[in-house]
Write a protein that binds this DNA or RNA. Sequence first.
RNA 1: AGACCUGUGAUGUAAUGGUUAGCAUACAAGAUUUUGAUUCUUGUUGUAUAGGUUCGAAUCCUGUCAGGUUUACCA
Length: 563
Amino acid sequence: MSEEKKSLNFIEQIIEDDLANGAKVENLRFRFPPEPNGYLHIGHTKAIGISFGLGEKYNAPVNLRFDDTNPAKEEQEYVDAIKKDVTWLGYEWENECYSSDYFQQLYDWAIQLIKDGKAYVDSQSSEEMAKQKGTPTTTGVAGPYRDRSVDENIDLFTKMKNGEFEEGSHVLRAKIDMSSPNMLLRDPLMYRILKKSHHRTGNDWVIYPMYDWTHGESDYIEQISHSLCSLEFKPHRDLYNWFRDNVYTYSKENYPLPPKQREFSRLNLSYTIMSKRKLLKLVEEGVVSGWDDPRMPTISGLRRRGYTPAAIRNFIETVGVSKRENIIDVALLEFKIREDLNKNANRVMGVLDPVKLVITNYPENKEEILIAENNPELEDSGSREVPFSGELYIEREDFREEANKKYFRLKLGKEVRLKNGYIIKGESCIKDEEGNITEIHCTYDPLSKSGSGTEESKRKVKGTLHWVSIKHAVEAEVRVYDRLFSDEAPDSHKDKDYMEFLNPDSLKTIKAFVEPSLRKAKIGERFQFQRLGYFNVDDDTNLEKLVFNKIVGLRDTWAKKSK
RNA sequence: AGACCUGUGAUGUAAUGGUUAGCAUACAAGAUUUUGAUUCUUGUUGUAUAGGUUCGAAUCCUGUCAGGUUUACCA
């Protein structure tokens, strides 16, 4: 591998600088810390790619840590789904960690902070506290409980822990600075009472630590060197450091390396949304069939749609890392899956919108076996047999009675080639009362068979059509997807709800006919339906029913021009 | 608007004070093609803005403008 002077992104630069300033490469350690309250989406892949990518680059461990401090929203189902998705993407974590495993340590440190006069129990309502907090432009004021004695604080906090108080009656707050320009430093909450069962700790705890108190200290316990998160946590950094520096004075023998937080901009993709809450609503309201609906931007949705881990990882790689807001064109993601599948997916023929084609001079009842290359882009991918006969299906839009020279497909009096087969000439067509074409008649040139080596077989005709032999065709259900939203940034409008932009035609279910070799196709297998696009075999496939998802269409300059 | 962050073609990103600002996607033209695909060639569009520092500025400084974040017992 030629490591051409590949430029470093700003995070890699920070790490290189740290290394140059004495940090040891063997102390590098990263983490990916999802909250198990929903399914991972393409946006998370960026965070995953950054931390696990750094792990691969520096041969450093990367933990998968579940940030499970809010039992009201978190479930084991999500933990399992997240593990499956990260694994599917091809990453291996060093340790599977849970913030809930640190609840006791966090509690012990909280006691020390109280003893040092750096935390206190507040017994007001959240409204009262919010009022005292001030606003970004006005400073806050101290509440009436801010100067409780250490003994009283210890007593109250112990009782909170022991379940002697109701939810909402008391909280533990860090005592920092009510006039800080950073609102997060105006005595942030560390603990609240929550009498809910936790998916891992059950009913052991009735007080739960808040994100800010938990996250940095979890990094610290795991000795994460660089805690990388998205930009909206930038203001939390001061608080991250405040907690870290205090705890460090208590535990530097056990945990010698203080971690540091750095922030990057999150990924946004055009024509979709990236908020777990909003995605959950699509699931709950039945707009989609589930978290893994192929139209969803979730990892599980992309997987079911037929995306490959390689394509997604390449996409993330190409997108890069910076600190500016961005909306990445979904066309880039589509390019990446085409790039992968063009190289790796076998070619087959299927007709999505069939019309009958009869070859009038083809001997009655004759059948032939034609040879078709599996993948001209991949050496040694071999070939397969495709049955041919005098009655075929072709795509309805591949025939016109008459058309101008720009139309390369079948028309009356003109020739095209049937892929892997013969050159045919349009002769006539039959229509029903409404004028719809029901049958096309053509003649073929028996000497023009593909690969036969004859003069005739080498003739150049402009168009080539895909087809299936009616007698041998296999019926299949094909699900054709369009973008879920019609707007480029559906949740960026202040005056309109993202639900207003739902595309009513995002799913079309079609009855199609495919070549018989696909009878043996396995769930998850991907193919290029020639001239149409890439498709995979959906999970709903069973012995009676073959179901395909359209992953993405081929690039189609003709469709663009003919508009 | 207090504080903080960010502004490079249509989109994303690179250039770490030093040649005509690079790459990918997108778009366009041509060649090749038994997929109007692929592949190949070529082309179009950019340093938000005004000053300053410097021999030299996308890069450093200041102002302006624009966008974002920040006032949850969520993470």
